[in-house]
Design a protein around this nucleic acid. Structure first.
Lengths: 214, 214
DNA sequence: GTCTATATGGTGATAGAC
DNA sequence: GTCTATCACCATATAGAC
C-alpha cells in the first residue's frame, strides 16, 4: 500500500546535532543559517558537523526526515483504530496539531522543505535529496484525504473541492508552527485546550455539524 | 484612531523594480535572493537597483510596504459599509483572500517580513526598517478583530480565544499565497469560487451558523 | 540613471594535525 | 571524532566612467 511504502522509522543517531540544527533552521531558515551557527550553538566547530553530514543540504534533509518520521509515528496508532471516518479524522487532526506544537522546531524545517520544493528554489542536489521526502509527505497527506472523502460520502462532512479543502485543513493544523510559543507555567491541559480550539476550527471549517464539534 | 494612523497610501515609484523583486523574493525568499538575480530578471545590472535602493534590506522593505498598502486599499471601502459585524467580516475576508491570490508575489514578502520579525532573525538595520511596518500590520489585524469581537457579542460567532482564533482565520485567508497557482484558462468566476471556499471554511471555523455560510 | 569594475566580508567545504 | 587552518566562491555594496 502506498501509505506503507512512505512510512518512516526514526533514526536516533546524531540527535544532538539534529536538534540544534532544527533550532537554527527554525530561527533563521535554511539559507540564512550557517554551519558555523549550528556548530557554535553546539559548542563545537564545523569539523564535527561535516564529519557526520557531507553537506548543509544533507543536514537539512536529515532534520526534515526526522520531523516527518515523528508525524508518521504519532499518527500510526490512531490510524489503526476502528472508528467512523469523521471521528478518526478528528483524532488524527488532534494528534497532528499537538505534534506541531511539541516539535515546532523540526516541523518548521519540514514546512520549509515542502516550500523549497514547491517553489523549485533549489540546486539540483537539494532537489534530489528532497524528492524522496516529498513523496513520503504526499503519502501522509493521503491518509487524511482518505478519511476526508469517506466522511463526506457519509454525509458527516460538507465541502466542495477535496484538494483545496485538504490544503485549508492542513494550514489550520500546521499553523501553530508559526504563531505558537510556550508560555511560562503552561500545563499539558493548556496545550490540550489549544489543540482543541485548532481542531474545532478545522472540523467546523470542513462542514462538520455542531453536535459533533461542540 | 489607531487604524488610521497605520494606514498606507501607495507609492507608485519604481514599480518595475518592486514587481520583479517581489517575484524573486517569492521564488527564493529574502536570504536566497541576490541583487544580481533581481537585476538579471530586470534585464539590467546591480547599478540600477542600488541607485534607487540603498540596500537589499531597503528593497525588501519597499516590497513589503507595497504589499501592505494593497491590503489597506482593498479593505478600506468594505470597512466603511454599514453592515452587521458578521457580514462586514465576511466581505472583508473575501476581499483579503482575493487579494492574496491576485498579488501573491507581494504578499509572500509581507509574510516573510512578519516571520523575520517574529523569529527575530534580523540584523539591527533590518529590525528597525521593519518595525514601522509591523505596527501597521497590527493595525490591519485589529480591523478584523474588531468585527470578530462584535460578531461574537452578537451571538453570530462562537469561539473561545480571540487571539488564537484571529491567527487561525488569517492562516486560512492567507493560505493561497502558499498553494495557489494560476491555471491556464482560469476565469474571474473560478477565482471567485475559490475565494468562496476559503471564506466559507474560515467563517464556519469561527462558528458562524450554517444559514449564513451556506 | 545605468554600467563596469572592484573592494570586502562571509560561507560552504576540505585537508591534515591531534 | 573533533579541531584548526585554509581555499574557493559568491554576494553586498561602492567608486567612477559614460
Amino acid at each position: 500500500m502506498a501509505a506503507n511504502a512512505g512510512e518512516m522509522t526514526i533514526d536516533t543517531s546524531h540527535m544532538d546535532i539534529l536538534s540544534v540544527a532544527a533550532d537554527c533552521f527554525e530561527k533563521s531558515g535554511f539559507a540564512a543559517t550557517s554551519i558555523d551557527d549550528v556548530a557554535r550553538k553546539l559548542g563545537a566547530t564545523k569539523g564535527r558537523i561535516y564529519h557526520h553530514f557531507p553537506s548543509k543540504t544533507d543536514l537539512f534533509v536529515a532534520v526534515v526526515r526526522r520531523g516527518m518520521a515523528m508525524c508518521y509515528e504519532v499518527i500510526e496508532p490512531v490510524r489503526q483504530l476502528d472508528l467512523p471516518p469523521l471521528q478518526k479524522l478528528s483524532r488524527m487532526a488532534a494528534a497532528h496539531a499537538k505534534l506541531m506544537i511539541e516539535t515546532k522546531h523540526f516541523q518548521r524545517s519540514v514546512w520549509e522543505g515542502v516550500e523549497m520544493h514547491r517553489r523549485a528554489a533549489m540546486t539540483p542536489d537539494q532537489r534530489e535529496a528532497l524528492e524522496e521526502l516529498l513523496k513520503t509527505r504526499e503519502g501522509y497527506s493521503a491518509l487524511f484525504r482518505r478519511e476526508l472523502t469517506a466522511a463526506r460520502d457519509n454525509g458527516d462532512l460538507d465541502f466542495e473541492n477535496l484538494s483545496v479543502t485538504n490544503q485549508l485543513m492542513f494550514m489550520a493544523l500546521n499553523s501553530p508552527i508559526f504563531w505558537y510559543s510556550p508560555r511560562p507555567g503552561e500545563t499539558e491541559t493548556d496545550i490540550n485546550r489549544l489543540v482543541g480550539q485548532i481542531v474545532q476550527f478545522a472540523l467546523r471549517g470542513l462542514g462538520a455539524s455542531k453536535e459533533f464539534t461542540g
